[in-house]
Amino acid sequence: MSEREIRSRLESFLCVRLGAAARPRIDDVHRVSVGRSRENWLFDATWLDGGTEVRESLIVRRDPLGGLLETDRAVEYAVLAALQATPVPAPAVRWLDADGAELGRPSLVMVREPGECDYFVLNGERPLEDRVALARRLCALLVEVHRADWAGAGLGDVFGDPGPEAATVELAGWESILRRDQLEPYPELELALRGLRATVPRSPRTVVVHGDFKAGNVLLRDGEPGTLLDWELAHLGDPHEDLGWITQPLRTREHLIAGAWERDDLLAYYEELSGWEVDRDAVRWWNALACFKTAVMQISGLRSYVEGRCDELYQPTAAVLGTLLDLVDELTGAPA
């Protein structure tokens, strides 16, 4: 969609939401290429509220035609709306176009929060001491997400509580996406499924799982973690799931600092802040599921490409499949 078209659609959209008397105006529309799953447009909106001019910097997240992930904007909207009642620093959400009737594709409009994302800030150019301190604050942010009162915030109305079977439910969900999108047999993933099913852990408690927690989804403001973005994979589940995602071998550069903030440091600090014991075996299972999910996303991306819904030729990479096989090998105890 062109800049002119999105501007026109946004003006009509805001007229409906705010009323024509509010005379909404859209300025400074431009697309940003952050993330691989959604199409993000930044813009400023100005309107009249009881004679007073209101101005907000906003962002609209539109579904692409295809890509790595297919998630529901209505669910993301409901999650963000519910999180406003918690201390979790999630972006304030404004409006939803659930079926894309107004903005062309399913979309949600959020307040644009200040700050910048830096995927690899923990291994960037800052002094080591600062980076370790930041890593600890990011861990504290994850604890804050997990300790949120999801029932009080109404998230039980958005998601089912999987209870102790959270891992089984999550595995089944990703397997169903694999079955939907695979274009050919993947013996690697069949073997991984077999190993994952045989060793599935039970969840000790239900929390809000972010699903893609990383420095790249945290807005840094003056070097401090601010708003946590990108809630499209959020759900209720096992806290070990996020710990497995951030300690998976494929993403160490984003989450760990060699020799200074290792896996054991992260898990121990999480235990200290949360007061919950971390089951290391469960984290290893979730590490393997994280790789499995990544492979399934790549397969979804490949199907999108073949169907002409995205223009990047994804495929499960040797790094992902090789790491997954190693992790499943460890889980199932096969001798080397």
Binding site: P187, E188, L191, G322, L325, T332, A334
Partner: peptide, 12 residues
Amino acid sequence: RRILIDLLGRMT
């Protein structure tokens, strides 16, 4: 399982 994992490693 070892035979399969070795094959799958070579395939990737």
